[in-house]
Computed example of a mutant assay.
Amino acid sequence: MTTQHSGSHSRTTAAAGQRRTIASFTNYRDAERAVDHLSDNNFPVDRTAIIGNDVRMVEQVVGRLNWGRALLNGAASGAVPGVLFGWIFGLFDLVNPLVAALTLALYGLVFGAVIGAIMGAIFYGMQRGRRDFSSVTAMVPSRYDLVVDEEVADEAQRLLAKLGTGSGS
């Protein structure tokens, strides 16, 4: 859903001067599509911004957390830096850097996974069952305002009017 604003409504002060909200969208995809439409019509898109408003934090629970999952997550998070550090240090071998890099990357994988699993167990044990779930946190705006510099706002509104009325949205 899109709400079009007339030129006299919302105004935002930006570093480059006055800005005007020319449209509001309920999802980011539509705001992105509007900017893409402006770009396709040779509008100076460097004078636009998409601003997320009324932001709320959403924590999506993705599963239960138990000892096995804590060990596995810890091992995975330790293995990645272990491989990278091992590979990088192996590249400094003057005799055969490729073999050394691969060998040390393998050692780093194992060592990092073990240390990560131990750390995962320690952190899980310290929680004492208070947070037995895994989650992913995101910041989600309720609307996205498309703002443009005041000097080019009328042109942007004219171009967006074409998008809403007949460009196969």
Results as ranks from 00 to 15, higher is better:
142 S>Y: 03
114 V>C: 07
151 E>C: 05
134 S>C: 12
117 A>K: 00
118 I>A: 11
149 D>W: 12
136 V>L: 08
108 G>N: 06
155 E>V: 12
139 M>N: 09
150 E>P: 06
149 D>T: 11
113 A>W: 04
149 D>S: 09
134 S>E: 14
126 M>W: 05
135 S>C: 04
115 I>F: 07
137 T>M: 13
144 Y>S: 00
120 G>L: 00
153 A>F: 09
129 G>T: 13
112 G>C: 10
123 F>Q: 13
137 T>E: 10
112 G>S: 09
146 L>S: 01
124 Y>S: 00
153 A>W: 04
141 P>M: 00
135 S>L: 02
113 A>N: 04
142 S>I: 05
151 E>W: 05
123 F>M: 13
136 V>I: 11
133 F>T: 15
110 V>F: 09
134 S>L: 11
132 D>W: 14
142 S>Q: 12
126 M>V: 08
114 V>D: 01
153 A>V: 01
143 R>F: 15
122 I>A: 09
129 G>H: 14
114 V>N: 03
142 S>L: 06
123 F>C: 07
107 Y>A: 10
104 L>S: 09
155 E>G: 09
141 P>W: 09
126 M>F: 11
146 L>E: 01
139 M>D: 07
151 E>M: 07
133 F>W: 11
105 A>Y: 01
103 T>R: 11
117 A>Y: 02
112 G>N: 08
154 D>H: 12
138 A>D: 14
110 V>R: 00
151 E>T: 11
122 I>W: 10
115 I>V: 13
151 E>N: 05
125 G>Q: 05
109 L>R: 01
130 R>I: 07
154 D>F: 10
154 D>Y: 11
103 T>I: 07
152 V>G: 03
104 L>E: 06
142 S>G: 03
147 V>L: 08
116 G>P: 06
118 I>Q: 05
120 G>N: 04
123 F>W: 08
129 G>Q: 03
155 E>T: 13
148 V>N: 07
124 Y>V: 00
136 V>W: 12
124 Y>C: 02
145 D>M: 03
128 R>K: 14
124 Y>K: 02
128 R>N: 10
147 V>M: 13
153 A>G: 06
126 M>D: 02
131 R>K: 13
109 L>A: 10
